[in-house]
Every structure is written in C-alpha cells, then in structure tokens.
C-alpha cells in the first residue's frame, strides 16, 4: 500500500515536468519575441577578429507566420536592396540589377555569420516541431526538429528564461548534431506597447573562427499589412511603407 502511495506521489511530482506543452511554449516564446505582424528597425554588425566592423541598417516588416521582408537603409552601397521571404521562398532585389533574384537560406546577403534564414527569421513554431522540453534551473531547454528539409538548420536547442519565456541562447545544429552557430539573446529592453524582448542578438560559429555578428533592435512595433506587400512585384516599393 505504501509502495502504491509512494508511486502515485512520485507521479504527481513528476507530472508537472511532463505536462509542459512544448508547442504552446514555443508559440509563447515566438509571441514574446515579436507581435505576429510588426515593423522593426535593426542594425546588423559583422565584426572581424581584429575588431574591424561592417554595419547594415534594415527596416523589416512581417505578417503572420511565414511572410517577412527587409529593406536596407545603409550603407550607401546596399541602400535600396530588399529581401522577401514567403515560407521557403526567398528573393533579393538589387536596384541596379532591377529585378528580384531567388536566394537560398544558407547564403548571406550581408556576408557575415548571419545567413538569410537568420536575417529573415520566421516564427520558430512555423518551421520547427518540439521534440522534448527539459527544465534546467531557471530555464527551459527545448529540442526542436525542422518540419521540412528546406529549413536552414535541421535541429535547434533553444534555452528560454522560465519567467520571461524569452530565448537566452539557441544552438543551430545539423542533422548529425554538428554545431553550425550559436545565437545569444541579450539586453532585454521595453520597446513599449507590451513588447519586452532582447534588443541584442549575437552569434558566433565554429565555421567562422574569430568572427562575430550582432543584430541590434532599435524599434519594434505592432503593425498590420496587406498580403500584397509580401510579393515580388511590391518588393521594389518597400520604402513606401516607412
């Protein structure tokens, strides 16, 4: 009798750990990072081993789970370049070339450690399934598996703050669990209208020894857009949304 009671008690203690709904948690992390539809201003900085830097300023608009577009505002050599992502489809528009060309998620339009999939990041829950969730101290550790072969990283390990439900670190892995890069989420900031999230994302990679890339957010706000904004035909006109 005592054994049965002990077993039930053990189950009751263990239950909360198994009761975490990984998918809901991941969706919550997504919503805490960004509203479902928003505009943002951010700067990407590529830092070389000797401290030399190259900076890019981007205006970004996103709608729903799978539509995102970015316009380069600086430097002058990149000004007017735009990128569009619709699910697995990505395009780059260069004003001089005058027409959009398809790009792939593993390339990088800025030539740093961030690739196109990092720069045009969709909701994590749109691209990944949660395989399991572990609790480690004050953090959740979510093991994510890509829903399709077309997703840039096959696996992610996402550490999220238990209280804020915001990511603190993400390891991007291949199918064979080889580390491609690590993203560090830092400096949580109040962007007003209820958006409180990390304002700095740093990344490094064993493939890019000594290099570091940083993404800094200066503004994020909820904004609704029409679907027509996220089309190849509209991409040269992104500036009109500012």
């Amino acid at each position: 009798m005592l054994k049965i009671f002990g077993f039930i008690l053990a189950l009751m203690i263990a239950l909360p750990a198994y009761a975490i709904d990984g998918t809901s948690l991941l969706k919550e992390v997504d919503r805490n990072l960004n509203p479902e539809s928003y505009e943002s201003y951010r700067k990407l900085i590529n830092i070389e081993p000797d401290g030399r830097k190259k900076e890019y300023t981007l205006f970004t608009v996103k709608k729903g789970a799978d539509k995102i577009a970015s316009l380069f505002l600086a430097p002058a050599s990149e000004k007017g370049r735009s990128t569009l992502r619709l699910g697995d489809n990505m395009w780059l528009y260069i004003p001089n070339v005058g027409k959009p060309i398809r790009i792939t998620s593993l390339q990088s339009v800025v030539g740093g450690v961030f690739n196109n999939a990092d720069i045009l990041q969709l909701d994590y829950a749109a691209e990944y399934d949660v395989e399991k969730v572990e609790e480690t101290g004050g953090e959740y550790l979510l093991y994510l598996k890509a829903k399709t072969k077309t997703v840039a990283y096959d696996r992610l390990k996402l550490w999220a703050d238990k209280g804020k439900k915001l990511p603190t670190k993400i390891e991007c892995l291949t199918e064979a669990n080889m580390l491609i890069k690590t993203l560090y989420f830092k400096e949580v900031k109040d962007f007003s209208s209820g958006i409180v999230r990390p304002s700095v994302i740093e990344t490094d990679s064993p493939l890019y020894k000594g290099y570091k890339s940083v993404m800094i957010f200066a503004g994020i706000k909820e904004r609704k857009f029409k679907d027509e904004v996220f089309t190849l035909t509209f991409i040269p006109s992104l500036e009109s949304l500012r």
């Binding site: 201003y41 900085i45 030399r52 300023t57 505002l73 002058a76 800094i216 200066a218 503004g219 500012r242």
Partner: peptide, 24 residues
C-alpha cells in the same frame, strides 16, 4: 581603422527624408 568595443544603434539614424540622393 579597426574599432573594438561596444556597438550602438539609435532609432534617429533611420529617420526618413522626403528626398534621397546617392550613387557611385
């Protein structure tokens, strides 16, 4: 020049002007 150290980003850098001039 190599710049070590911290990085900053102020939203005022992104202010839109009604006119734009550029080139190469």
């Amino acid at each position: 020049p190599a710049h070590a150290g911290e990085y900053t980003f102020d939203i005022s850098e992104t202010e839109k002007k009604p006119y734009q001039i550029g080139g190469y």
